[in-house]
Design a protein around this nucleic acid. Sequence first.
DNA 1: GGAGATTTCGAATCCGATTTTAAACGACAT
DNA 2: ATGTCGTTTAAAATCGGATTCGAAATCTCC
Lengths: 352, 352
Amino acid sequence: MKINKKANAEVKPDPRAPATKVTLAMVASACGVSSSTVSRILNGTAVVSPKKREAVDRAIAALGFTPNPVARGLAGGRTLSVGVVTQAIDSPFYGPALRGIEEELGNAGYSPLFVSGHWNSEEEQRCIDVLLSRRVDGLIILTGRLSDTALRNTAKSVPVVVTGRRLEAPGLYSLDFNNFQGAQLATHHLLSLGHRSIAFISGDPAHPDAHERLNGYRSALKAAGVPFNPALVLPGDYREHSGIEAVERLLDSRERFTAIFAANDQMAFGAALALYRRGLRVPDDVSLVGFDDLAAAVHSIPPLTSVHQGPSELGQLAATSLLNLLSGRVPTERLPEPRMVIRSSTRALPGP
Amino acid sequence: MKINKKANAEVKPDPRAPATKVTLAMVASACGVSSSTVSRILNGTAVVSPKKREAVDRAIAALGFTPNPVARGLAGGRTLSVGVVTQAIDSPFYGPALRGIEEELGNAGYSPLFVSGHWNSEEEQRCIDVLLSRRVDGLIILTGRLSDTALRNTAKSVPVVVTGRRLEAPGLYSLDFNNFQGAQLATHHLLSLGHRSIAFISGDPAHPDAHERLNGYRSALKAAGVPFNPALVLPGDYREHSGIEAVERLLDSRERFTAIFAANDQMAFGAALALYRRGLRVPDDVSLVGFDDLAAAVHSIPPLTSVHQGPSELGQLAATSLLNLLSGRVPTERLPEPRMVIRSSTRALPGP
DNA sequence: GGAGATTTCGAATCCGATTTTAAACGACAT
DNA sequence: ATGTCGTTTAAAATCGGATTCGAAATCTCC
């Protein structure tokens, strides 16, 4: 009995066998060449006689050999993985961007490593360090609060693509939305509908895009000859709840307004809810415009008019830019211009 | 000129220097011990005299040494990374789960590797193969459509935690929500509000939980002595649009109903929109209950009554279970019971 | 003080590739 | 036949640590 058991144990030396256990050395000896030859064939490096190449290819297929990325990473310095620093893995805006990145990178044989910085520059730096220690071949940084200097510095060790800012540096490529123009568009849309008292719920002032959006709003107002009324600008932090609070504050201030432009959709949703609670109808009593065109904007009540930014394109473009950087090319990707998506949350102001 | 260039190249042998370039061998020689000693101190393996340990610790700190996870993975077989197979990186339900996983794993020094299977068993299997080839130490599989057999098989090579099903196997731990009970709860809630004609929008029949939810609905109906009316069950696929279609079909069928229970929140949002378009008010004309309690349920109009499932707890528990598995312990984690979160989309049916 | 038992370390091996170095081979000219 | 220049290809070094094994150092007890 005992002996039997032992024999049994010897039959399966490694309980975790089913996975790729075939090594380069095995295929090498299988077809009587050296491991370096197999390696070179695998990487397309150097020349090999067609006869051997074929034999090796056949052996690889026969044994079902897959090169071990870990060993490859150690020896070759390339891990075929790229680090992606996002702010929250479950962000409704960046989620689709991650998806775009995953897709684009996957097609090129790279694997993304997602980590979250939670809008905290120190944490972002930690994330980058972790990623770097894992020897990623490149880095995609979705916005965040890292300093330009820190970014430039990181770009010295590894190619970097960063979004949400405009920055020039060696080994660095930046991709930025035109927030200013987007906000102009949104404001202009309301203006063209006859609205003159347009409240603005601003984003988190710690984000540069919040300022740009505010400026776009002011610029459009100015272009239309509508005086800027500071009382109509409410502070927000890009989250739903701040949209609720902003509307409540606005309503309580008894300042007159016929439309609201929220600096992002999440706050617009909050605003819509606050209006609903106070018995105000969108768009009958108040027109509402958001920014970002989140997936949820389509199914909100009413469907939200918003400025489309296309996070998934952002992700794809960031990924292809990085891929270009990695293969030594100079990326030329540009983000599409923002555009209005008009749904049911805005309507023309009835004539006086 | 040529010579100058060459000299220049020799000055900066590695352009990507700033990142952790310190190796174990360097700290070893820095404090006059062998590299194996440093390694052993790092891993807590074996005993070392306090004097040396301290010296080494100091040297590590001084040089800012970080062990290279790639090399470590090769040598030790452990990569301190775990693969997470989700269905879509931007899923509103699984997003928070990923966040929970990231947090829990991060605390333990592990890095998650997220990949998406897109509800396709072949793709899921490919994801697992990629993950395995990257030598992850463990696997978390969020639901998905993989066969139990495939899962059991995977568990032979690496510890696995799977959600969304109940499955026993060596090296495998499963975590499942009680969908049946959740659906009972939701239905019971409507029943207790006086509703008798409750429509049910079912989930994608390819998911086992869709059946469980339907059964929960039927069970609650039966317990209350309300006859089951097949005409009130509408097919859905868990996406918003199917909620819209279901309500339109329901309305067109002229079947009487006072409440709708959607098998998930996304369909509930779609249903709410369809009702809104037809001029029906929630909850005044129709009460509406969802399932999952997505983050968006709080800010929808009206805020949606739903069955709370807690995806972030799911993620955390999956992660701690896996961590237990990895350290040889037997996980005992259990998911919390589903519970109703009553908001504003349901109301008592006025007496006849 | 010394034999035997421990504890503490260092050198050698290995993980699974990549890359460099150099030897073997072949064709062609001398 | 010998020598030379170019290809192929094999052997060896490397990447950065983990692990095993055995030797040296320290300790125990008689």
